[in-house]
Design a protein around this nucleic acid. Structure first.
Lengths: 282, 282
DNA sequence: CTCAATTTGTTCGTATGTATG
DNA sequence: ACATACATACGAACAAATTGA
């Protein structure tokens, strides 16, 4: 490696991803963020060589990737250009409240997966209720346009499952749950972290081993404080998008002075029990 | 390649990250999530070979990485074991409503970054208000225990900035914003997707180029419908955790039958960090 | 104690991928 | 396009340590 690599080699050592892949992902991001506009001519190979401090062939390899993705077009003698209408990704907007969540998944048709070794029932935190006496385990894969985007693993209270076993096999469990009239849902929450795909998940979602995923743990608690639904939902990271209305849960503001935003039809009937207070950090 | 590669080459082609790195990251996660318990003997090399469908040497390379990280110990003739006290991670719970978000970032001390080329003001969607006439651009890095975990890039309305420039330079912009009495915050929302780090971000967060990150776009709109604060906040993916109360925004349920949950005085406000406490996955 | 089974550690040869100039 | 260097990954064989019968 030449002395020019001094800066970059550090970065490369941190990731081990092939350089041309790294370069490609940076350029891809510039296109997605409109830093490079559609139709625009991008920097010449010489300029890119200098900027990334890599060999010409490496730049070319990166450009090849983006050409295959339909994001770039090269023309000999003219240059390389951003595609006129770069493909926009499909995003699955994950609902951030009960009704929205149920709404977004209600038409999903999961394909069930046979499970040989159901995983043990996961430990519940204090605020996640008490375990039911018996659970059934269901696993399915969610598809959109033939592409898998999520793996759902559910521990469902056996009592609930027996009410409508057929329904639970053919429709999203959460959706069925929401439709059951005699089930008293007291609480439901979801915890999301970013992880990496294990072999079986990678296979089901058709992504790379260790590729980034969103792990959503969703727990539904009934009126007696029993965790009737405990799900571990794994989404492809490139398929999921969260949209959070920061004022959705607090129709009145804590600080004294400010006026409130125009009402967004926030039916605020009854209990003013604002719960919030979730620790956060920015 | 031999016929044994038929399965695996697909997986490898999907990600391009060296296989042993992928395997290592899967095993690392199993330790972090307590799927492999401290002190426990992990699967033998032969079993791991079969599970990951890779050669022995590749498994060894992965184990070498985790040994250097202090997560595994090997003993010839006995096996490979998880370290007795593997480090548990800190998670930052990202606030999912305005008050929670403001409350917990108010004591953060960001380290400002000089910006040579401020990025252009990003395009706003229809529901993100109209642009202000002029913006100032601020960029800072958030640290916890000496480790960087977030990069905040803010376009702040110049009118707002002038009210308290010193404050905005020394404290989180959102926190200052929330404290300004004559600012009418009408709406605020946050969109989160999972992306990959570009060179400068990777450098600031000390992660690999292309490593998974959480990209949070936060927009604050004032009473006139002007986007007074447009932030692009990038978190290390291993530092962030979202906790969403699915009923926070809807004190009454849409469907007829169910009773509502009792309010739960959530006592753990304050510090944004929690130890360990990772949802299990399999 | 010896033996065999188990398990990690090491090395070889080969093929392909990555990156430079 | 070529020559070079190094990294990645495979399969296979063998060596060395541990364990229990």
């Amino acid at each position: 490696m030449s002395e020019f690599m001094s800066e970059l080699s550090k970065v490369y050592d941190r990731s081990r991803v092939p350089l041309y892949i790294q370069v490609a992902s940076v350029m891809r991001r510039r296109i997605e963020t409109k830093h490079w506009l559609p139709g625009q001519k991008i920097s010449t190979l010489v300029e890119l060589e200098r900027e990334f401090e890599v060999a010409r062939v490496t730049i070319r390899q990166a450009i090849d990737i983006l050409r295959e993705e339909g994001l770039l077009r090269s023309q000999q003698g003219r240059g390389t250009f951003v595609a006129e209408k770069p493909v926009s990704r499909y995003w699955f907007k994950l609902g951030t409240n009960w009704d929205a969540l149920v709404e977004t998944i209600k038409d999903n048709v999961p394909r069930s997966i046979k499970v040989d070794n159901p995983p043990p029932f996961p430990a519940l935190r204090e605020d996640e209720g008490t375990p039911a006496s018996k659970y059934v385990f269901l696993r399915s894969v969610q598809y959109k346009e033939g592409e898998p985007y999520g793996v759902v693993s559910v521990h469902l209270s056996d009592d609930i499952y027996r009410v409508a076993p057929e329904e639970f096999r053919q429709h999203p469990a959460l959706s069925v749950l929401a439709g059951l009239k005699d089930v008293d849902v007291r609480d439901a929450h979801q915890t999301i972290v970013i992880g990496s795909a294990d072999p079986s998940t990678a296979d089901l979602l058709r992504i790379g081993l260790g590729a980034p995923i969103a792990e959503c743990r969703c727990v539904v608690i009934d009126g007696k404080g029993t965790a009737i639904y405990v799900a571990d939902i794994i989404y492809r990271s490139d398929a999921i998008k969260l949209h959070i209305d920061l004022f959705a849960g607090s129709p009145t503001r804590a600080r004294g002075a400010g006026k409130r935003r125009a009402s967004k039809a926030q039916a605020n009937a009854g209990s003013g029990a604002v719960r919030g207070d979730v620790p956060s950090c920015n």
